[in-house]
Design a protein around this nucleic acid. Structure first.
Lengths: 306, 306
DNA sequence: GCCTAGGTCCCGTGC
DNA sequence: GCACGGGGCCTAGGC
C-alpha cells in the first residue's frame, strides 16, 4: 500500500564529469524505505559518454535529438513508429516497434525484430530533421542526391540513447578477390612456372582483363579471377575478352579461369572452349600475401639490421 | 564536498508490471539533499518491455545476454570491443566503441560511428554464445552453413538493452523492376499496340528472358527490362539471349530494351545492333498497376454491386 | 544443396 | 557527375 504523503524529489546522479536526472514525486515514507515504488517512470541520465532516456516524452525526445544532431552524436531509438520512404522508388511501413539508428555521418537504419537488412534506411550524407507534430515525433532524413527522403513518425518512444563512439581502430583485414590478384602478381608461379605478368586490369572491349601475361613459350595468357565457384557468367566474360585480344604471331591465346572451383556444369563448357582452370582460393591467396609480407619484412630487416 | 556518513541504499523502481534497480551507497546528507552526487553508477531497470542496463559489469551483462538469448529478445549494446570474423574469408577489428545488435532470428550487426554498412555482421540463423573469460565478455555468433563465426570481445559495456519488438505491420510497398514487368504483362500496349505476351522469365541459354512476345506481324519480341538506365551489361545480356532464340519462319527477331533511359554511350551501340529502346520508368509502371488494381476493383464492384 | 538475378543494393574507382 | 564491377554482399525463387 502506498503512503499518501508525497515529496517532490529530484535525483541528480553524477558520475565522473556528470550527470543526471531522475524526477519524481514520492512519499516521505517511501523515501526512507528501502524499496520505493513509483507508479510511472520516465528518466534520463548520462554515464560516461552515453546519454540514455527511458520512455521520454516526445518533446523530451525531440529536444535530445536536436542536441544530438548538433553535436553529431549517434542516436539509437526503440520506438513505435511508421515509416515512409520516397525517392528512387517508394515504400510505406505501418505502425510497429522498431530499432532506429541515426549516425553522425547522416545515415539511417530502421530495423525490425528480424532480418539482417534494415526495413528502411538511408545511406550516409543525409540531413536530419526532428519536429513534434500533432502529438507525434517526426524525424526526417533527406538525401540530396539522388533526392529522396525517409520519414519516421513516432507515436511512442521506449528508449533513446545518444553518444559518440570513440573508435580509432583503423585496420580491418579481409581476403578478397583483389588479394587473389595480388597473390598471383607477387607469385606468378601460383598459376604456372615461368609466367611473366605483362599487365593487369587491362582495358579491353568494355571491361578489364584481370591479368594479362606471357607463358614460357610466348603464348598470351588471359586470366579471369573469381573468388567464388566460377560459372557461366565468368566463362562468358572471359570469352568476350578473347574476341578482342590477339596472341603474338605463331603463338596461342591461353584463357585461364582462376577460382576455388568450377560451378556445376561449367566443366564441360570450359573444356570445349579451350579454357584452362587453375584452382586457387581466398585462403591460399591470403597465405601467399602473408608470406610475402613477412619475407619483405625480413628483407627490410636485413637492410636495416647490424 | 562529499559528506562522509554513508548509507547503503537500494532503490527499486516499479512501473506497471515491475521493475527495477538502483544500487548505491550514499551519505545521509546527500539522501536528504535535492542533489545527490554518486561517484560511480551502474543501474538497471525495465520500463514497458525494454530492459536497460547502464554500465553493467561484464558478469551482469553476460547474465542478461543469456536471459535474452533464451527469451529470444533483441539485444542492443554500446560497448568497447574488438571483433574477429572467420569463415568465407576473415577479418580483424581492433579495440574501439561500437554499437552491437543481436536479433531474435540470430543475426548480428556491429556498427561503427560511421557508414551505412556494419563493419562486421552475421546473417540470420546464427547461434549465440556468451561467456565471461579473463575479465572480458566474449560473445560468439556461429553460422552453421556456410560455417563461419563472429567473435566479439568486450572490455567495457556502456549500455545494454534487451526487448521484444511488437511489430505486426506486414505490408511494405515498393516499386521494383518486377512491377515494370507486371505493368507490361497487364498492359502490353505500354510497349506497342497489338503486342501479345507469349511468356515471361523464359529460360534460355543460362538465363531468363524477361518477356517474350509476338507483335502484330508475328515477329518475335524479346524484352529486357531495367529499372535503372540501361548500359552495356544490359545490352550484352539481351544479345546473349538473341543468339539462342529463333523467330517464326519469315519473321524477325525484335530485341527491345525497356528502361527509364539509356546509359551514356549506349545509344549508338543499341542502334547498331538493331535493338529497340522503349522508355518506361518505375513511376509509370506503378501508376499502371495502380490503375489496373482500381479498375479491377471497379469490375469486382460491378459484379458484387446492386 | 547449387545457380541465377535483383536490390531504394552500397561502395570504390576511373573517366 | 556517370558507368562499371565487387561484396564475407543479402535475399528470393527454381531446380
Amino acid at each position: 500500500m502506498l503512503p499518501r504523503l508525497l515529496w517532490a524529489v529530484e535525483f541528480i546522479v553524477a558520475c565522473g564529469e556528470f550527470v543526471i536526472v531522475f524526477l519524481h514525486t514520492i512519499s516521505r515514507e517511501a523515501m526512507q524505505a528501502k524499496w520505493i515504488y513509483l507508479p510511472a517512470l520516465s528518466c534520463s541520465f548520462r554515464v560516461d559518454m552515453v546519454e540514455v532516456r527511458v520512455s521520454p516524452s516526445l518533446e523530451e525526445a525531440h529536444e535530445e535529438l536536436v542536441r544530438a544532431f548538433e553535436a553529431r552524436k549517434m542516436v539509437v531509438m526503440v520506438a513505435e513508429c511508421s515509416v515512409n520512404y520516397s525517392g528512387r522508388t517508394g515504400s510505406q511501413l505501418g505502425n510497429g516497434e522498431r530499432l532506429i539508428v541515426l549516425k553522425e555521418d547522416g545515415c539511417v537504419l530502421v530495423h525490425r525484430g528480424r532480418d539482417y537488412q534494415p526495413v528502411n534506411w538511408q545511406p550516409s550524407g543525409c540531413i536530419f530533421q526532428s519536429q513534434v507534430e500533432k502529438g507525434t515525433l517526426v524525424v526526417k532524413a533527406i538525401r540530396p542526391t539522388p533526392l529522396e527522403s525517409l520519414t519516421i513518425v513516432t507515436e511512442n518512444m521506449h528508449l533513446l540513447a545518444s553518444f559518440h563512439l570513440k573508435d580509432e581502430a583503423a585496420f580491418s583485414l579481409h581476403a578478397t578477390e583483389e588479394d587473389m590478384q595480388r597473390a598471383i602478381l607477387v607469385q606468378p608461379d601460383l598459376i604456372e612456372a615461368g609466367l611473366k605478368i605483362v599487365d593487369f586490369e587491362k582495358k579491353v572491349a568494355p571491361g578489364f582483363v584481370d591479368i594479362y601475361a606471357l607463358d614460357r613459350e610466348g603464348n598470351t595468357v588471359v586470366i579471369e579471377i573469381k573468388k567464388d565457384p566460377a560459372g557461366f557468367p565468368a566463362i562468358k566474360q572471359l570469352s568476350e575478352y578473347l574476341k578482342h585480344l590477339q596472341p603474338a604471331p605463331g603463338r596461342r591465346l591461353r584463357p585461364i579461369i582462376v577460382a576455388p572451383s568450377l560451378a556445376k556444369g561449367a566443366q564441360p563448357v570450359v573444356a570445349k572452349m579451350g579454357i584452362e582452370f587453375k584452382q586457387l582460393g581466398l585462403q591460399k591467396a591470403a597465405e601467399v600475401l602473408q608470406s610475402h609480407a613477412s619475407s619483405d619484412q625480413k628483407v627490410l630487416k636485413g637492410w636495416l639490421g647490424s
